[in-house]
Each structure stands twice: as structure tokens, then as C-alpha cells.
Amino acid sequence: MQDWKYETAEDIDQSVIERLQRVPREPDLFVYSLRLIAAGLIRVWMRVYHRLTITGRENLPNNGSYVLIANHTSHLDTISILSGLPIQSLHRVFPAAAKDFFFVSVPRVAFSAVMVNALPFDRHTNIRQSLSLCTRLLDRPNTILLIFPEGTRSPTGEMSDFKPGIGYLLAGNDVPVIPCRIEGAFEALPKGRFIPSPKRVRIMIGKPRHYSHLKRGKSAVVDICNDLQNSVSALASVDSTQATSIAAPEDHV
């Protein structure tokens, strides 16, 4: 008689907190249920309190892995974008979150990992490791990576220069990247404030862009950063109702 093949969880020898800190996490019915309930509540809150509107949803690929990038001005940004994605993709979206902020205490780890499935991104000492983790995740089928390439929330609401990490991640990589623009989140919850005010939040989703033909190198990184930054800015310059029709075209740099 042949032995049974057990597919033991890869994190069997880790504590609950260690399991929440690792990425990708093993599926967990309890965590998935909590995340689903939280996502439902957050969606209602975003739509009612912040009158969230999303344009350009048709630009999101139906399957396959892709990267979402957006400007970053507020803690509302991540949950706004998550609210704009189909609920079925909830557990395969990984918002890159600052390890030095979101993964420094048990409550923060629990919130980041359970509620938003955050990916701990070390933006100071182990950027390469974090980027290689992102690459590994994108190699998995149907993974969505949410990255704020500015690296931190803008204190003024103005978009600052994109960090080169996004360029290194995308150069020569056959993964589409979708630029998004978030408006109103800064007015609702700027850096330093803790209670959001009921300001309108809008998300504009642009057309996918590809950088697989670019060879990895400094110039490609700069080109990608500039191109993405321009495409996010371009989304801002148009009226939200027309955003998808005038958004950056789906072509190469």
C-alpha cells in the first residue's frame, strides 16, 4: 500500500505572529473570513463616508499577475484601492507596507496581515530582499502587488519622485503595471491626523503599461520611474469621468 501524501502547511513550525509576518501566507479560513468581513465594512464606509468613486475599472486585467501603483498621501490610500478591486481578488492582493511601521508590534502585524494582507517591505536596509520577494510573488499565478513608489506618504499632498525600486522590479519583467491616481485621500486623512474627515475620495485607474522589453539597468529604471510618474500625473489632469478614455495608452515606453 502506498503512503499518503500529506501537504503540510509550510509554516507549521512558526508561531501565529511569525505566520502573519511571512509572505506568501498559508491560506487560513479564520483570517480569510475576518478579512472578508473587514473588506465588506471598509467598502461600505468608503462608499458612504468618503463617497468613493472609481473610474477605469475595465483596465484591470481579469487574470494573471500584475502590479498596481499609485500616489501616496494618506493611510486611506491602501483601503481605497482595495475597495476598488473585485472582492474575489481580496486574498491575492499584497499591498507593500513599510516594515518599520506596520510590522513593529503585535497589533500592527495582526491588523496589517489580517485586514489588508500586507507585504512587509523593508525600505531602509533590505530593499533588495524585499524586491526579490515581490518578484517571487509576481511569479505566482494571479497575484496583485500594490506599491506606492514614492516610498512614503506625501506630507503636502503633492506627488514626489518615485523611488528607483519600482523600476528595478519592472524592468525586463513581463508583468503589466497599472497606474492609479488617488484624489481626496490627503484632504480626508493627511499625514499626522488620526480621524478621517468625510471628504470625497476618487480613484482613477489607468491603462496597463509594460516594460518587459527594457534591459535592466540604471537608464531603464529612470525611464520607468519617469513614465509611471507621468502616467499617474496624467490621470490627475483629466476629469474623473473621462479618466479611462484619456489615460496613458497601453504601449511601451
Partner: peptide, 21 residues
């Protein structure tokens, strides 16, 4: 049971795990 399901791999079968829960 959750530990058992994770150890044996049963947890990958959500429907069955839910029935046992």
C-alpha cells in the same frame, strides 16, 4: 482541529474543513 488540518494538509480542502468545523 485547525492544527491537525494544517499538519495533514486537509485545510487546503476548504469545504471539508468547514464541514468538520
Amino acid at each position: 482541529f485547525k492544527e491537525y488540518a494544517r499538519a495533514t494538509g486537509l485545510y487546503r480542502d476548504w469545504t471539508m474543513t468547514c464541514v468538520v468545523y
